[in-house]
C-alpha cells in the first residue's frame, strides 16, 4: 500500500468544517436578522459594506470564511453520496467532478466579486 494524497483534500475539509462551525452561524444569523428579521444594521448598507470590502484584508478574510466551508461541504457531499449508494468507479468519478468542480465554479464567481470590490470601487 502507498500513502494516499488524501491530506490535500482532508486538511481544507477540516479547516472548512471548523470555520463553518465557528463563523457561519454568526453570518447566517446576521443576514437573517437583517432581512426577514427587520433589522437594518448600518454595516450592511450598500456603501458601508462595499467600502469595508474595498480593504483587501477584509476581502481576503471574507473569501477564506466562504471558500473553506465550501470545500468542506463539497468533500462531505462527495463522501455522503458514496454512503448513499454511489459505488461504481464511473459514477464516483462523476460525483468527484460535480462536487469539486461545482465548488471551483462558485469560487471563480466569489473571487471575481471580491476582487471587484477591492479593485474597481474606490
Amino acid at each position: 500500500m502507498t500513502m494516499s494524497n488524501k491530506p490535500v483534500i482532508w486538511l481544507p475539509f477540516a479547516a472548512g468544517g471548523m470555520v463553518a462551525a465557528l463563523v457561519l452561524p454568526a453570518l447566517m444569523l446576521i443576514v437573517l436578522l437583517s432581512t426577514a428579521g427587520g433589522m437594518h444594521p448600518p454595516g450592511l448598507e450598500h456603501a458601508t459594506l462595499l467600502g469595508f470590502l474595498h480593504n483587501p484584508v477584509a476581502a481576503a478574510v471574507l473569501f477564506l470564511v466562504l471558500t473553506l466551508p465550501l470545500w468542506h461541504a463539497a468533500h462531505r457531499l462527495r463522501m455522503t453520496l458514496q454512503d448513499l449508494g454511489v459505488r461504481t468507479s464511473a459514477s464516483r468519478r462523476v460525483v468527484v467532478w460535480l462536487c469539486y468542480g461545482g465548488a471551483a465554479a462558485i469560487n471563480v464567481v466569489l473571487i471575481w466579486a471580491l476582487a471587484s470590490a477591492v479593485l474597481v470601487h474606490a
Partner: peptide, 15 residues
C-alpha cells in the same frame, strides 16, 4: 505504519 494507515484503505475511508 503511515504507508498502510495513510493509504486509500486506511484512515481515509472513515467518515
Amino acid at each position: 505504519r503511515a504507508e498502510v494507515t495513510g493509504s486509500e484503505n486506511g484512515v481515509w475511508e472513515c467518515t
